Amino acid sequence: MNIKTSNIANLPSKHGKFRIKAYKQENQEHLVIMSEDFEQIESPYVRIHSECLTGDTLGSLKCDCQNQLELALKFIGEKGGLIIYHRQEGRNIGLLNKVNAYALQDKGRDTVQANLELGFKEDERDYSVVDFIFKDLNIKSIKLITNNPKKIEYVESLGVKISQRIPAITESNIYNENYLNTKKEYFGHFL
């Protein structure tokens, strides 16, 4: 696996003072946002956050992504740890296809049906960069901030101990109820 890494840089934010490091895997660039004391924490809090431009940046109400990212940034800022900002938009179907999936959702499809109708699997994400990041940062035990059982399974398959799971539950709204129900019913998310 050919992954390039950046130097570590400081990133002061409204959530606290962080350090960041970028990882380039083929045509995708991922970001790790670390608390300043992350290296001194034996089992840091970790969020593997999948990119969502429409939610994270534009505040879309169709999902809970921005709320989960804000929750994780605040949590990491206060308690220490890191966020892996996993740049695989729309469960790794890309922004153009994600917008096409949104159009199908506007016609009544759920997120899984829309992806399948567009010719994709329900989830195209590849987490191999996470393994590289854990090894690069010498992470062997974490407290994982997630609702996603597949992320738990993946992290455990790497031999990284999950000493605790912290739910990333945020409030639902009329626009994301179907999305959250699909995550719960189809993907088994702990919601």
Rank of each mutant, 00 (worst) to 15 (best):
Y154E: 05
C65H: 04
I142H: 15
Q164T: 11
V130Q: 15
P149F: 07
I162G: 07
L96F: 15
L69Y: 01
L137T: 08
Q66I: 04
Y127K: 11
Y85L: 04
E153H: 13
G55L: 01
V160M: 07
K150T: 02
E122C: 15
E89H: 10
R165Y: 12
I76K: 11
G81K: 05
V160E: 00
Q68Y: 05
S141N: 09
L53S: 10
Y154T: 14
Q105I: 00
R91V: 13
Y154N: 08
K79T: 12
K107D: 02
K98N: 11
C63E: 08
S60C: 09
S163L: 03
S157I: 12
G119N: 09
A103D: 15
T111Y: 14
C63N: 05
Y102C: 00
R109P: 14
K135P: 08
I83S: 01
Y85S: 10
V129S: 07
G77L: 09
E124A: 13
V160W: 01
K79E: 08
E153Y: 08
E124C: 12
G59H: 03
N67L: 10
K98T: 05
Y154L: 10
L82C: 04
L137P: 09
L104W: 02
Q88R: 03
D106V: 10
C63H: 07
I83N: 00
R109C: 15
N147K: 10
G159E: 07
Q88T: 06
K140W: 11
C65G: 05
G94A: 07
R109F: 14
K140G: 15
D56H: 03
T57P: 15
C63T: 13
E153G: 08
V112D: 02
V99R: 06
K151L: 07
Q164N: 14
Q66R: 07
G59D: 01
R87G: 12
E70D: 11
Y85I: 01
L58Q: 07
A103I: 12
Y154F: 01
P149L: 04
F120W: 05
T146Y: 06
F75S: 04
D56Y: 02
L137E: 03
G159V: 11
N115I: 04
D123N: 07
K107V: 09
K74S: 13
N97L: 04
S141R: 11
S60L: 05
D131Q: 14
I162R: 06
A72W: 08
I142R: 03
S163D: 15
L61E: 01
Y102S: 11
N97A: 11
E78F: 08
R91L: 11
A114F: 04
L144E: 01
I139N: 08
I76D: 14
I133H: 02
E89L: 03
L96D: 15
K143C: 10
T111F: 01
R125P: 03
L82N: 06
N138K: 10
Q105D: 12
V129N: 00
S141V: 13
C65R: 01
E124I: 04
I152R: 09
C65S: 02
Q105G: 14
Q105V: 04
P149I: 14
I93T: 02
R109S: 15
I133T: 03
V112W: 06
D56W: 03
